[in-house]
C-alpha cells in the first residue's frame, strides 16, 4: 500500500497541484489570483506529461554503447509546445486584467459585477 503511494508520488503531486489550481480559479474573486490558479492548474498537467515521459534509469534516445533504456522524448517536446501555449494564455490573461483595471478601476470580480449591474 505504502509502496503504491510512494511509487506514484509524481501523480500525487500532480493531483495536489491540479486541485489547488482549480480551486483557486473557481474560488478567488481577484482576477490575478484566478490567472495564477489557472497557471498552477496547467503546470500540474505539464508535470504529469514530463514525469510519465521519464523511465527509471532511462537516458536520452541516442544510440550509444552501454545504454539500452531510453526515455521517450516526445512528451517533453509536446510539453514545450504546451508551455508556450500556457505562457501565451497567462500573458493574454494578464493583459486583459490590465485593460479591465483601466476600464473598471478594480480587479475584484464582485466589484466589477456590481459596476456592470448598476448601469
Amino acid at each position: 500500500m505504502i509502496e503504491v503511494i510512494i511509487g506514484h508520488y509524481n501523480y500525487w503531486v500532480v493531483i495536489l497541484l491540479m486541485m489547488a489550481g482549480f480551486y483557486t480559479v473557481i474560488n478567488r474573486g481577484n482576477l490575478i489570483k484566478k490567472i495564477a490558479g489557472l497557471n498552477i492548474f496547467q503546470t500540474s498537467v505539464f508535470l504529469l506529461y514530463i514525469s510519465i515521459g521519464y523511465i527509471n534509469e532511462g537516458t536520452m534516445p541516442i544510440i550509444a554503447e552501454g545504454f539500452d533504456k531510453y526515455a521517450n522524448p516526445l512528451p517533453h517536446v509536446m510539453i514545450l509546445t504546451a508551455i508556450v501555449v500556457g505562457v501565451s494564455t497567462i500573458a493574454l490573461g494578464l493583459a486583459l486584467i490590465v485593460r479591465i483595471k483601466d476600464a473598471y478601476g478594480t480587479i475584484e470580480e464582485d466589484e466589477i459585477h456590481d459596476q456592470d449591474m448598476s448601469l
Binding site: 489557472l38 492548474f41 498537467v45 493574454l92 490573461g93 486583459l96 486584467i97 485593460r99 479591465i100
Partner: peptide, 27 residues
C-alpha cells in the same frame, strides 16, 4: 463596451480549463 473585456476574460478562464482538460485526456 468595457464588458467585452470581462466577457473575454471569463471565456479565457473557461476555455483554458477546457483546453487543459483536453490536454490531460490526450496525455
Amino acid at each position: 463596451q468595457r464588458r467585452a473585456l470581462t466577457a473575454a476574460f471569463q471565456y479565457l478562464i473557461m476555455g483554458s480549463i477546457g483546453a487543459t482538460f483536453l490536454l490531460i485526456g490526450i496525455g
